[in-house]
Design a binder for these strands. Structure first.
Length: 360
DNA sequence: AATTCGGGGCC
DNA sequence: GGCCCAGAATT
């Protein structure tokens, strides 16, 4: 397998010149800030989800200096709903580090040392923004490589082997002349031809060199180790409203799940349930008249399924509680998805109360 | 080496 | 309902 000939970079580049995706971060002059931002947003996130958020982010933070100078609260609000919030924290820290040194470094090693930039993103920025002849290995490249070389070893164990095989592609002159286009061509090949299911091998510029296709096992690659089952966790949250219709939000601890983001106060999330008496001890003002809203909000995280119920109360004038008072519409935009679902639950309960459902 | 991090789109 | 997505940091 390691002795198989390299698939021709020239064929892939020729295909890319005709079929590449029109993506917004490919339009402008090569700006490391814009390319870095796209790469961070695209970590474990689809192009469709990223595209509008990437545009909006650049309107709010047009330069890395603007991002570096912004308060964290503004960055968090802009990232809300995108997930993996450590990315936003590291993005902010990275912007400050880059601004302090007057621009991005242009080598893999220096990029790799910045917050939130791992092996993949360092190689991607180096190749796409600075034309360095390196191959970033993402899910697309792993899949293309596993199929091309018929690697049957399971992920994640096969990762070093796949990375080594992929890096050899950049040895060709045609690739080294256009590193930025070549690596993006690999992404597009994986996203549009060499797809996880039902790959369009008949349209592939590398079909003749693909050992997985020759063996008829391409669609089943790469193989992956079985995943663990996701437990269910339960939590109770508190919707405290003041006389002006605003709600109490609290900034979550800076690390861990939803770290640094706003949220409704609540109990910890655990696998056993909560009695109302037990839950209320976590309330921002346990002495108030808390009552339960009907229904629950569900939210899927990567490693557990969360089910949340809601207790609500009215804050008397002058109540002293920690946190911030937010209008519901502004809060909905600034909250991560799990917390947005709680507000939707409250809205549904309010609609139910004002217009009781009829039978039939 | 394994775990912890979100959320959405698509089959 | 499961799978995947231009992964990184932590332990």
């Amino acid at each position: 397998m390691s002795s198989s000939p390299l698939p021709p970079a020239s064929a892939l580049l020729h295909w890319y010149d005709r079929h590449r995706r029109a993506l917004p971060w490919r339009e402008a002059v090569r700006d490391p800030y814009r390319i870095w931002l796209s790469e961070v947003m695209l970590q474990q996130t689809t192009v469709a989800a990223v595209t509008p958020r990437w545009r909006r982010f650049l309107i709010r933070f047009p330069s890395i200096a603007a991002l570096a100078a912004a308060p964290w609260e503004d960055v968090a609000a802009e990232w809300a709903g995108l997930g993996y919030y450590a990315r936003a924290r590291n993005l902010h820290a990275c912007a400050q580090a880059v601004a302090a040194r007057n621009g991005f470094p242009d080598t893999v090693e220096e990029l790799r040392a910045l917050p939130g930039i791992g092996a993949y993103t360092a190689a991607a920025v180096a190749a796409i923004a600075f034309g360095r002849p390196v191959v970033p290995v993402d899910g697309n490249v792993e899949r293309v490589t596993a199929r091309l070389h018929a690697v049957e070893e399971e992920l994640p164990g096969a990762r070093p082997r796949l990375s080594g095989l992929a890096s050899r592609w950049m040895e060709q002159d045609a690739a080294r002349e256009r590193p930025s286009d070549f690596v993006q061509a690999l992404f597009d090949l994986g996203a549009t031809i060499c797809t996880p299911r039902n790959p369009a091998c008949a349209l592939c510029p590398w079909q003749a060199e693909c050992e997985g296709r020759r063996q008829g096992i391409a669609p089943s690659l790469p193989r992956k180790a079985p995943k663990r089952d996701r437990p269910t966790r339960l939590g109770v949250h508190f919707l405290l409203r003041d006389g002006a219709g605003r709600m109490l939000l609290q900034r979550r601890p800076p690390r861990g799940l939803l770290g640094g983001m706003l949220g409704l106060p609540g109990t910890p999330w655990r696998e056993s349930g909560w009695t109302p008496e037990e839950a209320i001890t976590y309330a921002p003002a346990p002495g108030l008249d808390w009552h339960a809203l009907p229904g629950e909000a569900r939210h899927g995280f990567t490693h557990f399924e969360l089910r949340m119920t809601l207790l609500t109360a009215e804050a008397p004038p002058g109540l002293e509680v920690g946190g911030e008072w937010w209008r519901p519409d502004a809060a909905q935009d600034a909250l991560p998805g799990a917390m947005q679902r709680l507000l939707l639950l409250a809205e549904a309960a309010a609609a139910m109360a004002s217009r009781p459902p009829r039978a039939g």
